[in-house]
Structure formats: C-alpha cells, structure tokens
Amino acid sequence: MLKYTFSILLFALCLGVSGQEAPAKNKEPRSYKPYELKLGVNAIRSTKTFVDADFSSNELEAALALDRFVLVMNYGMEDRKRGDSVDYINKGSYYRVGFDRNFAKDKESGNVLSLGLRYARSSFEDQLSFTSDQGFGEQTYVFTNEDLKARWLEVVFGLRGKVVSNLYMGFSMRWQFARKINGEGDLKTYDVPGFGKTKRQNSTAFDYYLMWRIPFGDK
C-alpha cells in the first residue's frame, strides 16, 4: 500500500489545483499549436531493474501537448525470467501511441489530469525449459517461440504534478483490453512485454513516471 501513498497524495493535490477558480481572463481563441513536450522514464520499471536480478526493463514516454489534448508515445524494452521448477525467459520491446484529454484547468502549470486511449504493440520471444520425467525418462525439455507479436488497446487515467522547476512526477493507470497474440507454437506465452501476464484477457497496470517539461514559446 505504501507505494500508492505518493500517488494518492499527488492525486489529492491535483484535484485541489484543478478545482481552484481560475482568475477571470479574456477568452482566447483555441490554438492547437504544440505548447510543451514532456519526456520521461517509467520509474517503477527502472527501479525494479536495479532491485530484481530477474527483471530488466526501461520505458520512455514522450508527451506533446496541444491545447487540451496530449499526443503520447511510450517505448520500452523488457527482459524477464520467471519460475522455480521451470525456467521461463521472455524478452522483447513494445510501444504505445495514443492521446489524452487533459482535464486540469490550468494547463500552463504543466499539471495533467487526463483520460486517454492507446494502441500498443509488442515484438518479443519466449522460452520455457524444464527437466522432468513425462513418462519417457528424465529429460530436459526446451520450448521456444522466436517471433511473437502482440497488440492491445488501453484506456489510461493519468496524473502528472510539478515537483520542482520543470520536473514532473505522476502515475498512469491502465485498463488493457482486446489483446491478440500471434506466432505462438506449442508454448503458450505467459508474459507480453508492456502488457504483463496473459492469464487474463484484460488487465490493469500501474506506472509511475518521472518527467522533464520542455515548454515551447509563451503559450
């Protein structure tokens, strides 16, 4: 529960920020000219890479803001080992592209309270090996899928809050659905990089991001 504490506090802070009355201004015409770019890393994946010898992953996010909409792209790589009595290795890359609608009232602050959609794809390979007696004497069995592809859709709830200067932090909560996997042989894949376990057709994911804001011009 501790790992959610910061997000809950940040969420409450942003709700407070977005709930504040904006000072009366003359209404300006809407402009879809990009006014900021945020570049960031997935802090959970980077941290887990340091502490978990069986997991290695890095994910970058780029978010280009245009008026109330934000074009978002993620690219990540993942290499994971699982298993006690089996060895399961899964490695590959993934990307997500999509857009968010930013509901934060003061967009110049760079804070984001958003809901969006993503299309995601992953290219990966996996291998299961184990030693067992399946009635044919004890043998080591190795099953491999060398060219796997997966795609899915996501509904993403996101929150980004300013920490200091142009440094922002926040989380994305994903509901992942409509997953398809192509290229499976005798081995059914257990993980999809960027999606997680395949046991459920739909999944949820929770990611923290640490981001740097690059504002464009005065808007």
Binding site: R82, S85, Y88, S132, Y141, F143, D186
Partner: peptide, 16 residues
Amino acid sequence: YDPELSIFDPSCDPSI
C-alpha cells in the same frame, strides 16, 4: 495430438 505447454504459475510445474 498437438501438445500445448503453458505456465499455470511460475511456482508450479509446467502445465501440459
């Protein structure tokens, strides 16, 4: 037959 192998859970034996 067509064999199908999967991981029921990483702590379990392979599911065949």
